[in-house]
């Protein structure tokens, strides 16, 4: 099982985590666009191969955070708390 480094709890087996999907823009910033843009926001995903920013949740402690992961090699590159991208590697 993979290890994921929770920014709060440290390295833990992946079984302790829930995958929360790709990090997407705040809907508050998108709600005023055209219907088509909103549909694109709601349904479409960036499912292509590459490094993705994703939500992950450490279940026992209830911690949401962001992980950057290559969805082909399955390597986690960094993890940080939401909004802490600039300050924490």
């Amino acid at each position: 099982m993979k290890i994921l480094n929770c920014p709060i709890n440290g390295p833990r087996p992946l079984q302790e985590f829930h995958f929360g999907g790709e990090l997407r823009p705040n809907p508050l910033d998108r709600k005023d666009g055209a219907d088509a843009d909103w549909a694109d926001y709601v349904f479409n995903r960036d499912g292509e191969p590459g490094v993705k920013r994703e939500w992950w949740y450490h279940i026992p402690s209830g911690t949401w955070f962001i992980a950057e992961r290559d969805n082909v090699t399955d390597q986690f590159q960094r993890t940080y708390l939401y909004g802490a991208e600039q300050t924490d590697g």
């Binding site: 099982m1 079984q15 829930h18 995958f19 499912g47 994703e54 969805n71 082909v72 399955d74």
Partner: peptide
């Protein structure tokens, strides 16, 4: 599998 991945690795889980 519970998360996105474009790889055909196996897991023990």
């Amino acid at each position: 599998d519970p998360y996105e991945l474009i790889s055909m690795r196996s897991t023990l889980d």
